[in-house]
Design a binder for these strands. Structure first.
Lengths: 140, 140
DNA sequence: TGTACGTTTGAGCAATCGTTCAAATGAATG
DNA sequence: CATTCATTTGAACGATTGCTCAAACGTACA
C-alpha cells in the first residue's frame, strides 16, 4: 500500500550481515521496533518467566501457592533433595516469588507473588488446552 | 484437625535424606501434592514459559505479535544475527509459538499463540509494576 | 556447653543453552 | 545452467544451569 520499495540493491559499505543496506520492509521493522518495551522491562520479564520455565520450580511455586511449607516438607512434595530444594528457593527468593518466614529451626516458605502464580496457572491451563488440540511440541 | 502428630522420631532405615521418616506436617504435604497437576502438564507449561524466559525470544515474540516479519527484518529489529534469529525461530516454531509462511525466498513469521503472547504481555506489565515498588531482583 | 537437626552454602560436574561461523539448501533471475 | 540471496543447518565454543556431595551455620534442647 505504501512505500515498500525503499529496498534497492545499493551496495554500500555497511555490513549489516543482512540483506542489502535496507531491509525488506522498513516500515514493518519500524513498527515492530516500537512494539518492543524498554530493554530493562524485557530482561525483567524474561527473568521472571525463566523462574517458571523449569518443572522443578513450577512445582515449587504451585505447592507454595497452595500451602505454606518448610523446606523439608517441600522437598518431600517434590520428591527432591533438601539441598536441591533450598538452592531453587534461594533463586526464587532472590526473584521475589517466594516469601520466607523462620520459626525455630524451620523455615516456612510460601508464594509471595500472586500475579506470577496466576500467570503460571494460566500457563498450566493453556498447556492442558493445547494438549487437546493437535500440538506437537517438536518431540525432538 | 486431624492426625498431624504422625511425626514421631522413629529411626527406620529409610534414608529420605530429610527429617525423620515422617514429614514435619504430613497434612500440608498431602494438600500440596494434590495441588500439583499431572507431570506432563508441569513439563509442558515449564517448556512454554522457558521460551519466553530469555530476552531474545521475548523480543521475537513481541515483535512477531505486532508485525509479520521475514527473518532478515526480524534480525534487524532484534539487532541480532540472521543465523541466531533463525535458530531461535526454529525453537519457537517447534513449540508452536510462531507461525511460518514462505513467499518466494522469504520466510514470513508471525506469532501463532495468542494466549502465550497475552501471558507475555501481562508479564511485561507485571515487571513494570514491580519496578515501581521496592523489588530487588537479587542483582546477582 | 554439647548434641541434634533443619537449613544454607560452596565446590564440582554433567547437561543444556545461546551464539558464532561456515557450509548447505532452495527459490528466483539472467 | 549458473548466480544471487534469504534462510536453514550443524559443528563448535563459552556460559549458564540444576543437581549432588560435603561442610558450615544456627537454633533448640538436654
Amino acid at each position: 500500500m505504501s512505500s515498500v520499495e525503499t529496498a534497492q540493491d545499493l551496495s554500500t559499505s555497511t555490513d549489516d550481515g543482512c540483506c542489502e543496506v535496507f531491509f525488506v520492509d522498513a516500515e514493518r521493522v519500524e513498527r515492530a521496533r516500537e512494539a518492543l518495551p524498554a530493554e530493562h522491562l524485557v530482561s525483567a520479564a524474561a527473568a521472571l518467566f525463566k523462574v517458571i520455565g523449569h518443572p522443578t520450580r513450577v512445582r515449587i511455586l504451585l505447592a507454595l501457592a497452595a500451602e505454606e511449607l518448610c523446606v523439608c516438607d517441600l522437598a518431600q512434595v517434590l520428591d527432591a533433595t533438601v539441598s536441591a530444594t533450598s538452592h531453587q528457593l534461594r533463586n526464587m527468593r532472590a526473584m521475589g516469588l517466594v516469601y520466607f518466614r523462620t520459626e525455630g529451626k524451620l523455615a516456612y516458605y510460601r508464594a509471595s507473588d500472586p500475579v506470577m502464580v496466576s500467570l503460571l496457572q494460566q500457563g498450566i491451563e493453556h498447556a492442558r488446552d493445547r494438549r487437546s488440540e493437535s500440538h506437537d511440541d517438536g518431540g525432538a
